[in-house]
Computed example of a mutant assay.
Amino acid sequence: MSNKPILYFLCTGNSCRSQMAEGLGKEILGDEWDVHSAGIEAHGLNPKAVEMMNEIGIDISDQESSIIDPEILNNTQLVITLCGDARENCPVLPKGVKSEHWGLVDPAKAEGTEEEVNQVFRDVRDEIKNRLMELKGRK
């Protein structure tokens, strides 16, 4: 573990939202935070999330879908849940760990044409990016 504070993104399956948040977090906050993501379950990395991140020059194809790691959780300074399921089912946070909830649409459940589905992924990706820029400004 590095000496930087840990930022932990949590979601249901650690396949889309939290994976995009991890990639964006490393890009935007990587000099200040040690960024990780995990899920209540591990559903595998969503190929559409990889594709939409590649559009903005961030490669998340090497990231792995994983379940919450108690060691990382116990050393985290900030937990950000990205869906209601993660917020409700997240293990009890250790004392002193701050948490925020960013309720985001699940792009994996988007329906419609390929372009419509892609747009939902882009919207979620861009929302995460905007919130991370705000977080960076708060530090």
Score class of each variant (00 low, 15 high):
L29D: 05
G30S: 06
G30I: 03
E32L: 13
E32N: 11
W33E: 02
V35W: 00
V35R: 00
S37P: 02
A38T: 01
G39H: 02
I40Q: 00
I40E: 00
E41N: 09
H43L: 08
G44K: 06
N46K: 10
N46T: 11
K48A: 15
A49I: 07
M52A: 15
M53C: 11
I56E: 14
I58A: 03
I60Y: 00
I60L: 02
Q63C: 06
E64Q: 14
E64N: 11
E64S: 15
I67K: 07
I67W: 03
I68S: 01
P70T: 02
P70W: 04
E71D: 12
I72G: 01
I72A: 01
N74C: 09
T76D: 02
T76M: 02
L78H: 10
L78Y: 07
T81P: 04
L82K: 03
L82V: 07
L82Q: 03
D85P: 06
D85M: 14
D85L: 13
R87F: 10
N89E: 14
N89W: 11
P91V: 12
V92G: 09
V92R: 14
L93A: 09
P94C: 03
G96V: 07
V97T: 14
V97Y: 04
V97W: 03
K98Y: 11
K98F: 08
K98V: 10
S99M: 13
S99W: 12
E100A: 10
W102M: 11
G103E: 15
L104F: 10
L104D: 05
V105L: 14
D106I: 09
A108D: 03
A110H: 01
A110V: 00
E111L: 07
G112W: 01
G112L: 01
E114R: 06
E115G: 08
E115V: 06
V117H: 03
N118I: 08
N118V: 07
Q119P: 07
